[in-house]
């Protein structure tokens, strides 16, 4: 129960951050990637703020504690190989992000303030995830 409540709180902060930052606004996202057109550099500030906070917070956390508060260990991804799956998957993800203007972390909170057409994107994305899992034979892979 404790883990569920802390995840709920983290999710609420995450969703609020996405909504305030503009990361859940496809028009804003697409304009970030259009420096030769209607450029909006805001997303650099989102990524910068998120990265600095996470890097600093992780550093402080891992320096002070051997374990998290509600679990016996930190579950950090153990995969090390840089393979075609990682690079090809990432390349494909970027193409989809550039087409729709939504990434998963942007779209999920956007469902809360712009249900349509966000739901359409999320349903299609769910279909893509299921299709890829089917192609992979549904191995239980650790996600980053």
């Amino acid at each position: 129960m404790k883990r569920i409540l802390s995840a709920l709180a983290a999710g609420m902060i995450f969703g609020t951050g996405i909504a305030i930052s503009g990361m859940g606004n496809p028009a804003k996202v697409l304009n970030f990637f259009d420096p030769f057109g209607t450029w909006d550099p805001s997303l650099a500030f989102v990524m910068g703020g998120a990265l600095l906070t996470a890097a600093l917070g992780y550093r402080l956390l891992f320096g002070r504690r051997q374990t998290p508060l509600f679990d016996t260990k930190f579950h950090l991804p153990t995969a090390r190989t840089i393979d075609a799956k990682l690079v090809g998957g990432s390349a494909l993800f970027g193409i989809g992000w550039g087409i729709a203007g939504f990434c998963p972390g942007g779209a999920v909170p956007a469902l809360g303030f712009a249900p349509w057409p966000t739901a359409l994107f999320l349903i299609a994305m769910g279909g893509g995830i299921l299709f890829a899992r089917w192609l992979q034979g549904i191995p239980r892979r650790q996600t980053a």
Partner: peptide, 15 residues
């Protein structure tokens, strides 16, 4: 939007 969604779904699963 739906096309982008499917591609994003496949991409993030492999990545």
């Amino acid at each position: 939007l739906a096309l982008g969604g499917v591609i994003v779904g496949v991409g993030v699963t492999y990545a």
